[in-house]
Each structure stands twice: as C-alpha cells, then as structure tokens.
C-alpha cells in the first residue's frame, strides 16, 4: 500500500518558505498504474521522491508498505565506471536476469559504459535496472522521455507487460503514455493539496 496522510512539505529557499504540498491525502491503488500529469515545476517529482523515501515530510506521513520500490529517474543515474550490464546486475544481483532485460531493451551495447551510450540508450538501461529489481512499487518520472519513436514502442510494450499486477506511478506529459495507465491524476494548483481524477 502507498498512502499519503495529510502530507505537507515545505522547502526553505533563500530564507523564504516554499510550500510544495499542503495537507495532501491520497491512497494509490495497489496493482494499478497511476499517471500524474501537471505543469512543470509544480511538484510531481516531489511526490515520487516522498514515495521512494528520498524526502521527509514536514507534516503528515507517507506509508509505503511495499517490500521493494524501483525508481526510473528523469536522468538515467547510472554508475559511470560500470558497464550497462554491471549497472543492472549491481542492483538486482543476478547477471542472468540483468542480461534478460538488457537483451530486450538494449540488444546491442550491454557491455558498453554509460558515456559510450546515447541519452536514450542510457535511459533504457535505467528502465532495465528498474525491471530487473523486480519491485512491487515502480516509480517512473518521465521515463520514456528522450526515446525515439521506434524504440519507444518496444519499451512501452515491455514495460506494460512488466507492470501488470504491480503498483506503478508514472509522471508524464505525453498523452500517448496515458493510454496504458488505469488512473490519471492531474495536479493543477500549487501547493498540491489534492490529486484530481481525470475522466477519459
């Protein structure tokens, strides 16, 4: 279960307080894919960071009862001194499993270092890493951004298959990506105090 209970979050920047979340309560549906949309800079990534335990709330609590959480960040965040295969193996601890996902998402280049791969290829390694981790909760922050159309279709297909039965939260601006989400939430006002359901 992933539940936000009266969560408030305030950042202090240059002596001024900036409220990002205010009294937000929401329970994400287990086993479903939820998309979050909204304008840039409103705090969508903050929600994922709170869910992943990377941020502490100022008030309220985030309850994440999932044993494992995978996170595809906006940037690939790969270890530059490890090959694509080593990056994935490092997280899942199983080279065979890492190879399996890389063979699908990056058929050529699993032995390459991040600086030898394009931005899109690095992002595919990051997605493969999240899949190989085999987590119950998967967080995707504009994970498919930067992928070319041809690759994107293959990645979406694999990702869709992988996310079946898992809880996923996906931040996206791309309408085509909303198609495979069960629920779409929209953030329109800052500070975030509610996540509005979008009827499709």
């Amino acid at each position: 279960m992933l539940k936000f209970e009266k969560v408030s979050l305030t950042f202090k920047t240059e002596g001024r307080e900036q409220h990002v979340l205010k009294d937000l309560s929401y329970t994400f549906e287990t086993g479903r894919i939820t998309a979050i949309t909204g304008v840039s800079g409103i705090g969508k990534t903050t929600i994922l960071n709170l869910a992943a335990g990377l941020l502490e709330t100022s008030e309220g609590s985030v309850i994440n009862t999932f044993a494992k959480t995978a996170y595809v960040f906006q940037e690939p965040r790969l270890l530059p001194w490890k090959t694509a295969l080593e990056n994935v193996t490092c997280v899942c601890g199983d080279e065979k499993k890492a190879k399996f996902y890389l063979d699908i998402l990056l058929p050529e280049g699993s032995d390459k270092y991040p600086d030898e791969l394009s931005g899109g290829m690095q992002q595919r390694v990051s997605i493969a890493r999240a899949m190989a981790y085999d987590a119950e909760l998967v967080l995707l922050d504009e994970a498919l951004k930067g992928l070319d159309m041809q690759t994107k279709d293959a990645v979406v297909k694999t990702l869709r298959e992988h996310l079946k039965g898992r809880t996923a939260i996906m931040i996206t601006h791309d309408k085509s990506e909303l198609e495979f989400c069960d629920t779409v939430l929209e953030i329109s006002d800052a500070p975030i105090s509610e996540l509005k359901h979008v009827n499709r």
């Binding site: 995978a70 996170y71 270890l79 490890k82 490092c90």
Partner: peptide
C-alpha cells in the same frame, strides 16, 4: 553525485556496496 546516492538509497545498496560502487570510484 547526490543523484547516485539517491539511486543507491532506493535500490537499497548495502554500506559496503555504497563504498565500493560509489565512494571509492
């Protein structure tokens, strides 16, 4: 890299793995 530290936290790198895979390099 703070981003890599966050990645290590999410993927639950052990203390030893953080040292060998992140800090030493």
């Amino acid at each position: 890299d703070k981003g890599l530290l966050q990645m290590a936290k999410v993927y639950r790198f052990s203390r030893l793995k953080r040292i060998t895979a992140l800090y030493i390099p």
